[in-house]
Design a protein around this nucleic acid. Structure first.
Lengths: 194, 194, 194, 194
DNA sequence: TATGAATGAGCCTTCATTCAT
DNA sequence: TATGAATGAAGGCTCATTCAT
């Protein structure tokens, strides 16, 4: 039952937003009563928090498996991390969207707890970029801003990518990775602001 | 007064979200009463709609000025469009965030009206990419997905870029443009998935 | 309207208790809606607080007028204060009962504010007793416990005295005063615990 | 277990009131579940009723032992009854307070049952006063109102007397009895309202 | 142009109680 | 004897909106 409530919560929070989804909406969908909801969750916010935790802990775990894989070189790691995020869409699209949109509705304590894990995820990506620079594979540059550019691409994909569309997720990951590493210009002569 | 209501609405919708901001919150901030609000706006949603329109029409207008500037070549246009979006942060950060987060709270008709303009903006970027390809400046590829990657970078910047930070917006735009055109790898030999 | 809400609140809080009286009960009695209630009071507790304040400030004011009356001697003052409390029944019986029964439902801050005024009332009575002792009118003794005995008599009367009964309030006040000053035994020879 | 539930009920009903104490509060305090509660009591009200009965039957029994003691004269009886009530504080303070405050939450039938016993207690006191008058020990007067004055003193003591304070209960009983019999004025010449 | 009073629907949450196990 | 899951009614409170002035 708890799992069913979470699934329905994810569905409705994504569709209508946390604030616009009432506990009534959730239990009605499940054919149970409000009392049941509060038997499993102490508040609507707790449900939101558990949804956040489930998601962030899942992708942090995947990320760490990639980072710690001794058979992966730098490029493979970057590719896998980007692919992982895009692939996540297929099974956790809704959670991912809730994650980026509804975090502000967590209370201060829960907010900070989630924010910390979110930062950890970002730092791991940034660390990877910095390693690439150290190894001479990447150009020197602002690793922090590059990181944000990459996360921007992947996070934004939750709002347009459709697993049912004509382009499969692997293809999107390839395009992203190629863009990030090589750019899209035909030669390398262009220098901005000249 | 109408302008002041809009400004306060932007402030609060951004800070707390559309659903979590009550008409009471807005008028209280201004020291007027609810009656006043409803004299200028027929509903809370209408305020949201006007905020959306003000923003999207402003950036569409800027975009078109760039696109139609006969003195700009392709690269300059791309640079200017990216810079324009980042620069917007300084004066319209809040509107931009509301734009990406609260659109779902518009009623069907208003939603469609805004969505159309939003698509127009995206299509203009995509058209620019396609021109670049046609002109041989860019490599052949999925212009649509490249467009989403670019929009992802810029839209995401609303959630981390701070005009008060150490990196100025022009620098961010340069980094983004360089990433998009040339990538970040040290050479061009890398080919993913081989 | 605010006054009407207070009157109804006094009626129902006395009859059924603060906790057992819902805001719905109050507004239903008045034929208005809950919104109206919350237009005048920020919470149910605030109504309770205002009821407390109205009562305690009223009797403190009366008490001070008696205490400061230069034409009253000690005995007259004591008589008037006891009579005042009994007389209050006729118009503020319900408030008086709420006062002694529902105070615990005030939040900490409101509780302390009311408690302070309540103590002031008690201290004034005790001060009067101490004056009587100093002036040689009363026997020496524990003024504090005597005070509690007197307050017990008068406060308890709220639970049995009926203004419609055969004994008028002045008569009750006389009996109380006589009991306090002279006791009920036929002579003064009795000494307890011998 | 039943006894433990009653003890906890007494504790919490006194501390927070009947209405503000949930069955959940009680079983939580005991580390058991709601099912257990309903195994021993058919409803929350039944617990309240048993608490009332336990208390009132206990003090009625004590009262009757005093009244029927052939070695006690009138004054001794009055003294013992007052002392008994004050002494009760030490072991049954909470029950006594619940008794005077929560009776209204009993259903009609239970209410009447308890009320009858309560009246019996009061009538016994009044009968004692009347006997004193008949025997010429007390002045003629309204025995009913005198009774209420005495009960007021003793009942009120539940709200201020502390067994840990500097004045022991025997001393309080002595002061009360002396006040009732002899009054507190230094002579007997005072006549009110002249 | 602006106010202030009122509405009514809906929201989150609590809680006494039931019942199969 | 005791548990754990579930119910359903009610409670306090919020809020977008209306309307006479």
């Amino acid at each position: 039952m708890k799992r069913k409530i979470m699934e329905t919560g994810i569905l409705l929070f994504d569709k209508n937003g946390f604030k616009s989804t009432s506990v009534q909406d959730i239990v009605q969908e499940l054919g149970v009563t409000k009392g049941t909801f509060y038997y499993y969750f102490s508040s609507k916010e707790e449900l939101l928090k558990e949804i956040h935790l489930l998601y962030i802990e899942s992708i942090i775990k995947q990320q760490e498996e990639i980072m710690n894989n001794p058979f992966y070189d730098f490029a493979k790691k970057l590719h896998e991390i980007i692919l992982m995020q895009i692939s996540t869409i297929r099974i956790e699209l809704r959670s991912a969207r809730i994650f980026t949109r509804e975090m502000r509705h967590l209370s201060r304590d829960n907010f900070l707890e989630i924010k910390e894990k979110r930062s950890a995820f970002r730092h791991n990506v940034q660390k990877l970029i910095e390693e690439g620079i150290t190894q001479g594979i990447l150009q020197k540059g602002r690793a922090d801003i590059i990181t944000m550019a990459i996360l921007g691409m992947t996070n934004w994909s939750y709002y347009w990518f459709s697993p049912e569309g004509e382009v499969p997720e692997e293809k999107v990951a390839d395009i992203f990775l190629d863009l990030i590493l090589n750019g899209i210009s035909n030669d390398s002569v262009y220098t901005p602001n000249i």
